[in-house]
Amino acid sequence: MSPALSLRRLRSASQGAGVLITLGVLLVALTLGMGQLEPLFRALFPSVSNPLYTRDSYLNLMLAHLGLVAVSSLISVSIGIAAGLFVTRPAGREFEPMVSSLAAIGQTFPPAAVLAIAVPLAGFGFAPTIIALSLYGLLPVIQNTITGLNTVPETTREAARGNGMSAWQILWRIELPLAMRVIIAGIRVSVIINIGTATIGSTVGAKSLGTPLIAGLVSNNLAYIIQGAVLVGLLAIVADLAFERLERRFSFGG
């Protein structure tokens, strides 16, 4: 790589890195050091006898939350990209309207309703939450995969065929890299939705950052709600910034 190119990459990489790093450090510090803030919460909520959620450590809750988001996003992304790829191939093109509307229907269900349906089937806890989140995060991935692949110019594809690439080589070397920015934008939306929605998993017994939130709502403890909400919000912002930077790597000036 030439110095000019790597310099350009470096410069664009450093843009906004400060904000991301600052917020990331803040997120880790709050997760590990929420206990240190007990005097603050005591001062803010003098009427509450127990203003710090202590039934579980925030580190455990954060890891559980990340686990839920990671597993459900992995499922959404795998199924979403596979479906998007399938309907943009000649063999699957006729299924595109069906797949698109199925994914859209998946998103019109409120996640709470999906949870309610999933609990009798999958029991309480982790599994129904994963089902609900995966279903909910599917649409942006499918839609953006289809859009991204369709934005690859026909001339580019023709040039690839004309130069003797096989369908597989065209997909891997040309179509996917060129569609990647749009696909990652879809994954970004899906992950951000799931970070927020994972909190309601706690209503069916899945451990997450929603656990103190629900506990706070049940016991009318605003301090619990703030602690959970701040961490979830911060996590969503950090993830969003990180994805934005990932997207930028796949921009080729055109």
């Binding site: 001339t155 580019t156 023709e158 040039a159 004309g162 070397r173 040309i174 060129l178 080729f252 000036g253």
Partner: peptide, 8 residues
Amino acid sequence: IQSTGLFP
């Protein structure tokens, strides 16, 4: 083909 055929 025309220059748009380059892989961007």
